[in-house]
Computed example of a mutant assay.
Amino acid sequence: MNKLKNKSTLMLAVIAVAISSLLSACHSEEKEKESAEEQQEQAVETPAVELTPVKKGKLSSNITIPGELIPYQQVDLYAKINSYVKKLLVDIGSEVHQGQLLVVLEAPEINSQLAGAQSRIKQQEAIYYASKATYDRLVNTSKTPGTVSLNDLEQAEAKKNSDLANVEAAKSAYKEVSANLAYLEIRAPFDGVITSRNVNLGAYVGPGGKGSDPLFTLQDQKRLRLVVSVPESSTGALSNKTEVNFTVKALPSEKFTAQVKRLAGALDEKLRSERLEMDVYNKDKKLLPHMFAEVNVPLPGGDSTFVVPKTAVVTSTEKVFVIKVVNHKAQWVDAKKGLTSGDMMEVYGDLKPDDKLVKVATDEIRDGSTVKDK
């Protein structure tokens, strides 16, 4: 009986110890859980942030935009008068020089008009010579007093002058008709390449001919214009001293350079962008007009501005801002973005050098909340 009693007592003691240990462990877990919750609440209420100072600086950036190569000069050549194509001296791909004869036209009626104009000159000259002879005789006769009235003399002089004017008018009409002969020969206005031909021998051309189709299209391809449209946000850094790089799909392994020569100085109303033109010298003719190009336009930094990490700038649905920390209090400061380069960005706002900003900012750090340094 004593042995049985001792065993029961021992078992009760073991159970009591186990229960005590279990209660102690539970109590410890509850304390740890409460401590973790307190730390979590404290971290939410007072987040630890890494700060970065505001510094003055200049950033240089670049943008890649599409561009187009167009001829430096291009002209469509038309026939000014109704005529027929008599000779074609060039074709597509022909290289021509300024003043070179390209096509000869034929208009038989012009020869008839020219002959008629010449006949009218002779007719008016004959009338003039007759009235001049009459006037000269009256002048000689009037030297004898009382033989010719002054009125008759004045009338003869007026007739002579009128006939002389008719002679000059006839000569002007002749020049007008003869000038049309020059239009029967079409010459190149500048050095270039014929890129299109829309007529054949014997074709009827002119105002009543093939309508608006030109006879030829002439392009200057030794120098091209590289045209790009720069978005409004990047126009402030543009300069006519900028040199750009570009590539074309036809020659992907080659990189070309060009100098900015012309700035539009105004924004396109539809695209809200500024037109830039660069001169590209193309003596080897690797580049063709109307090729598309990928253009890398450098954007040098302007006046010294505030430069901060891009992670310090928050873009929300409401606004763009940075978070300044003053006496462990977060302050939202409205900001405007500038150029970006790598991990840095220009910002404009109510900031001062050496202000402390949250390096990795989010809108979860509320305005006026307490923060602490990491």
Results as ranks from 00 to 15, higher is better:
1 M>W: 06
7 K>D: 02
15 I>C: 09
21 S>V: 14
27 H>T: 11
35 S>K: 03
36 A>R: 11
47 P>R: 01
48 A>N: 03
61 S>M: 05
62 N>Y: 09
66 P>Q: 13
71 P>H: 08
72 Y>M: 06
73 Q>N: 15
73 Q>D: 10
80 K>R: 14
81 I>M: 11
84 Y>A: 08
86 K>I: 02
91 D>N: 14
104 V>Q: 05
105 L>Q: 04
111 N>V: 14
116 G>I: 15
116 G>E: 15
118 Q>Y: 12
120 R>P: 00
124 Q>Y: 08
124 Q>N: 13
136 D>C: 02
140 N>H: 07
140 N>A: 15
150 L>A: 13
163 D>M: 01
169 A>Y: 08
174 Y>N: 10
185 E>S: 10
187 R>T: 08
204 Y>M: 11
209 G>Y: 06
210 K>D: 10
215 L>S: 06
216 F>Q: 07
220 D>I: 00
221 Q>M: 14
223 R>I: 13
225 R>P: 06
227 V>S: 03
231 P>M: 00
235 T>E: 08
237 A>I: 01
241 K>C: 01
245 N>E: 06
247 T>Y: 05
253 S>A: 15
256 F>C: 08
265 G>R: 14
266 A>K: 11
267 L>M: 12
270 K>P: 01
276 L>F: 03
279 D>Y: 05
280 V>T: 12
286 K>T: 11
287 L>K: 06
292 F>N: 15
296 N>H: 12
308 V>P: 00
310 K>D: 03
313 V>C: 09
321 F>P: 12
322 V>L: 09
323 I>Y: 11
324 K>I: 11
327 N>P: 00
339 L>G: 15
339 L>Y: 15
350 D>S: 07
353 P>F: 02
355 D>M: 10
358 V>Q: 03
362 T>C: 14
365 I>Y: 00
367 D>S: 05
368 G>F: 07
